[in-house]
Amino acid sequence: MHKFKDKVVVVTGGASGIGAATVDAFWLEGARVAALDIKERAEKAPDGVRSYPCDVADETSVEATFDRVVSEIGNIDVVVHSAAVLGGSGPFHQLNLDTWNRYINTNLSGSFLVSRAAASRMVAQGTKGRIILVGSVNSVASERGAAPYASSKGGIRMLTRSAAVDLAPYGITVNMILPGPITTPATRKNFEQLETRRIFERVLPGGLPGLPTDIAAAALFLASPESRFVTGTDLLVDGGMFAQILN
């Protein structure tokens, strides 16, 4: 196995949930992994995974962290950006600018800063790399009370396309994963509620939410040589939610 042996992979949001599962998945495939997060990982990371504190909404933090990764681990081959502010924010007419900016700054501007940091170094080092952004089904459809979140994720969808077009001449692909409901430490409490379980039984053909490893597996594909001709697109990993017409 070890498809990514000696490859350097950067994962943001790597301390928990989808990010932690992605860190583990690439490590198991032989990659040298840098796990970036604003907080520490609760459980011990695999030996050989390096953890770096990083605030993806802060340009100085992102640039300095990417410089450290290159200096300490090596030239970057793959970036998986999963760090995000999650959750609803309340009715649209009651939103304030601070709330709006919190989602936009971390989710959308953070995606730009991480993607640019990765792309600039890949171009400079001549690497035909992979940039993978983790969005949401809310990139293409909104829920009530989630306007800043959905808007930030929708913006990432167009950022993916724009970056893919500009970076294609350098052999760098840029793609986006759109997860449906995924059980993580941040969502588990809500997902265990009876009302939420009943909603899943209705909107998910299989009736159950996905796991972080489902998203990590999609990232492995988009980072692989087999995805060479896949760029500027979305990969829905939603358990068939968008395929179903509700009666």
Rank of each mutant, 00 (worst) to 15 (best):
K3Q: 14
F4C: 04
V9L: 02
V10D: 08
V10C: 06
T12H: 03
G13S: 05
G14N: 05
A15W: 02
A15T: 01
A20Q: 12
A21K: 09
D24M: 07
A25N: 11
A25E: 03
W27E: 09
W27V: 08
E29Y: 03
A31G: 10
R32Q: 09
R32D: 07
A35H: 07
K39A: 14
K39W: 06
P46A: 07
G48W: 09
V49N: 04
R50K: 14
S51A: 13
S51Y: 14
Y52Q: 14
A57H: 00
D58H: 10
E59W: 02
E59F: 08
E59I: 11
E59N: 09
S61Y: 12
S61Q: 09
T65E: 00
F66H: 01
F66E: 00
F66L: 00
D67V: 07
R68F: 12
V69C: 09
V70K: 03
V70P: 00
E72C: 08
E72Q: 14
D77Q: 03
V78N: 01
V80Y: 13
A83I: 00
V85F: 11
L86W: 08
G87I: 04
G88I: 02
G88Q: 08
S89Y: 04
L95T: 06
L95A: 12
L95C: 09
L97Q: 15
D98N: 07
W100I: 15
I104M: 10
T106W: 05
S109Q: 14
S109T: 15
S115M: 09
R116D: 12
A117S: 07
A117N: 06
S120G: 07
R121M: 00
A124Y: 01
Q125H: 15
Q125R: 15
K128T: 13
I132G: 05
I132W: 01
N138T: 11
S139A: 11
A141N: 11
R144G: 13
G145S: 10
A146D: 11
K153T: 13
G154K: 08
G154P: 04
G155L: 00
G155K: 07
L159Y: 02
T160C: 10
T160W: 07
T160L: 01
Y170F: 15
Y170L: 04
I172G: 02
V174L: 04
N175V: 04
N175L: 10
P181R: 06
T183L: 09
T183W: 08
T184R: 08
P185V: 08
P185R: 06
A186K: 05
T187Y: 01
E192C: 00
E192F: 05
L194P: 03
R198V: 03
I199W: 11
I199K: 11
F200E: 06
L204W: 03
G207T: 13
P209Y: 04
A216F: 12
A216D: 03
S224F: 13
V230F: 09
V230W: 02
T231M: 03
L235Y: 03
L236V: 07
D238T: 00
G239L: 00
G240M: 12
M241H: 03
A243Y: 05
A243R: 05
L246W: 14
N247C: 10
